[in-house]
Design a protein around this nucleic acid. Structure first.
Length: 573
RNA sequence: GCACUCAUGGUGAAAUGGAUAUCACGACGGUCUUCGGAACCGUUAUUGGGGGUUCGAAUCCCUCUGGGUGCACCA
């Protein structure tokens, strides 16, 4: 519809002697100013030395000569705004369209035929899965789904640091105190204690030079796999922490296609870096470094391989990037991380672009803000982290309490607690633009009413109840072409519903899921107002089938929208 | 010090350069209405300071102030 209207305006302008490339057509902020609006009159009036209002009038007349049936009326407002009001027929058709498209409603073709790899979450074995990982997961999963809705084949990747000093620190403590961890406990409990061990090891490493030496030795032994006892703990610890992560992914609704490990990326990266010494990299104080500032004054020098010959994160990142392209050759490779990686990633990207110039334009680094505590930055080294499990636990507990009195089975209640608890959490992250930091405070940041995930779910559930009731009264029309009795009044709900695909496309273009969250909240609010003011199910009203269909269209849109945020729509709650 | 990033009601946020800056929480006051009150309706209060570009700036540019993050062998 938007394209059609733009075309109409272009033709009208042409007839008035103005050639133009693009038309800016937008939704007025205030819905009473029409459904689409343009300010071409303001833009072009100067050229014709006429007043914007007069030009607007002329454009209006031109378009009205052959008014498409989707347009109800055109109005001129303010200095030279041309406002278009869509017709009753258009809105009724779009409701039918939604019901026909079902789960495909909202998709676009911006990435048709493309393959996109998205890397996110990135927790490290032997370290806790904290709320920062939860943030990365919520954002990455939503971006993956938005990309999928834009027509791409999406590949989800996770990158995990299974080697390095952090592992040695944890193993050091576990070696010292073998009874510290009760291995018969569940994976998540054991993982919690391994994280504790890491924190203790980190502390000892910083404060005791003797311990530092011991841990460094363990670290080398991990790489060389030369100590049988270390190997055993390593293999067990990696396995059990990964199992614990997997439980969280399942609860969050993420299924990764690839797991990349630093241990495997290190040799690949190291080979590439060494091959390019003299070309891209150079030696400095025994280390292999990259002087990025020679290519871009805003970048800086970074060490890739230490003077001891140990490959650093930078080198592993190169290995990872190359491995991704060699395995899947994606058209776009998106990596999401917190902002703290921003500068470092630019340097690495520059190095990669010199080695593989054809990768550069296909790599995209999306940075998000940090999840922080009101007391300051979290650090798993210091042990002042809020773990993902505990946050999920708190969130689901709130819901458990709320549904306790409901007449539902224990299994249903448990399922609802999970779905709604996760939703509260995810929404609190995805409601704001990904660049902003989030100060974690459970009571303040995790909300269950108003602008929240549960509010959206609750609204969808209400709609679902209406549909179920309509079904039992046989007011549900399945052949949508039979929906002929349309009420004259156009609701705000209808005026929002048809915009959903535009919102999805916008979210993709900016890689900003919060546009979807904002839209859904507006939509839910419009539905609740409609629900409060309209008797939807009324056997005596000829409009009842259309109104029920409208509720169905709303439910479908909400369901698809929540899916894009990685949130499930429950049947009841 | 340099670079990146951010600054919007009491609080948390939204706004492809467009109209009277939009939501939610909070506070206060209503709705007890059918189909689920985790709801609806109303009142309240906001663009860090100063310049500039533009018909038009929360948005773009400059500058100041104030957060956050990063800058050689952690990841």
């Amino acid at each position: 519809m938007k394209e059609k209207l733009e075309e109409q305006i272009k033709i009208a302008l042409q007839n008035l002697g103005i050639e133009t490339e693009s038309i800016v057509l937008e939704h007025p902020a205030d819905i009473s100013n029409g459904d689409y609006s343009t300010n071409v009159a303001l833009v072009y009036a100067k050229q014709l030395s006429t007043s914007p209002r007069d030009l607007a009038e002329k454009i209006k007349e031109e378009i009205e000569k052959d008014l498409p049936k989707e347009i109800e009326k055109i109005e001129i407002a303010g200095a030279g705004f041309i406002n278009f009001y869509l017709s009753r027929e258009f809105f009724a058709d779009s409701v039918k369209d939604i019901l026909n498209q079902k789960d495909n409603w909202g998709k676009n073709k911006l990435l048709a035929g493309k393959k996109v790899m998205v890397e996110y979450t990135q927790p490290n074995p032997f370290k806790p899965f904290h709320i920062g990982h939860l943030m990365s997961n919520a954002i990455g999963e939503s971006i993956s789904r938005v990309v999928e809705f834009s027509g791409a084949k999406t590949i989800r990747a996770n990158y995990q640091g299974d080697v390095g000093p952090h592992v040695a620190k944890a193993i050091y403590i576990i070696l010292k105190d073998k009874d510290m961890i009760d291995r018969s406990q569940s994976a998540s409990v054991v993982a919690y204690w391994i994280g504790k061990a890491y924190s203790l090891g980190s502390d000892a490493y910083d404060n005791d030079p003797e311990v530092k030496k011991e841990i460094d030795t363990i670290n080398q032994n991990i790489y060389s796999r030369s100590d049988e006892e270390v190997n055993k703990i390593y293999d067990w610890g990696k396995k059990v922490t990964l199992e614990a992560f997997e439980e969280i992914y399942e609860l969050l609704g993420t299924k990764f296609d690839y797991y990349f490990f630093e241990s495997a990326m290190a040799p690949i990266g190291q080979k590439i870096v060494r091959e390019n010494v003299g070309k891209v990299f150079s030696e400095s104080d025994g280390a292999i470094v990259f002087h990025a500032e020679e290519y871009d004054p805003k970048l800086h020098t970074r060490v890739f391989i230490t003077s001891q010959g140990v490959p650093l994160y930078e080198t592993k990142e190169i290995g990872l990037t190359v491995a991704k392209f060699e395995k899947e050759n994606p058209d776009i490779s998106i990596v999401t991380t917190a902002i703290e990686q921003g500068e470092y990633m630019k340097v690495v990207a520059k190095a990669i672009s010199l080695i593989h110039p054809n990768y550069e334009s296909r790599m995209k680094h999306v940075t998000h803000g940090m999840m922080r505590l009101s007391s300051g930055k979290m650090s798993s080294r210091k042990g002042n982290v809020v773990t993902g499990e505990s946050l999920l636990q708190d969130s689901t507990d709130v819901i458990r309490e709320k549904v306790a009195e409901r007449d539902l089975s224990v299994e249903e209640k448990e399922e609802i607690a999970k779905i709604v608890g996760v939703s509260a959490l995810k929404y609190s992250i995805l409601r704001s633009s990904i660049g902003s930091n989030i100060i974690y405070d459970f009571d303040k940041s995790i909300s269950f009413d108003g602008d929240s995930g549960p509010y959206l779910q609750y609204t969808a559930v209400r709609a679902n109840s209406v549909i179920k009731k309509a079904e039992s009264l046989q007011l549900l029309i399945t052949d949508y072409q039979l929906l002929n009795q349309i009420p004259e009044e156009i609701t705000v709900l209808e005026k929002l519903l048809y915009r959903f695909p535009e919102v999805v496309a916008h979210a993709y273009k900016e890689l900003e899921p919060h546009h979807i969250a904002t839209f859904l909240t507006e939509l839910a609010s419009a539905f609740n107002a409609f629900y409060a003011n309209t008797i939807i199910i009324d056997k005596d009203s000829v409009y009842s089938p259309y109104r029920v269909a409208l509720v169905e269209a709303f439910h479908q849109t909400m369901k698809n929208g929540l899916w894009l945020l990685g949130i499930k729509t429950p049947e009841k709650m």
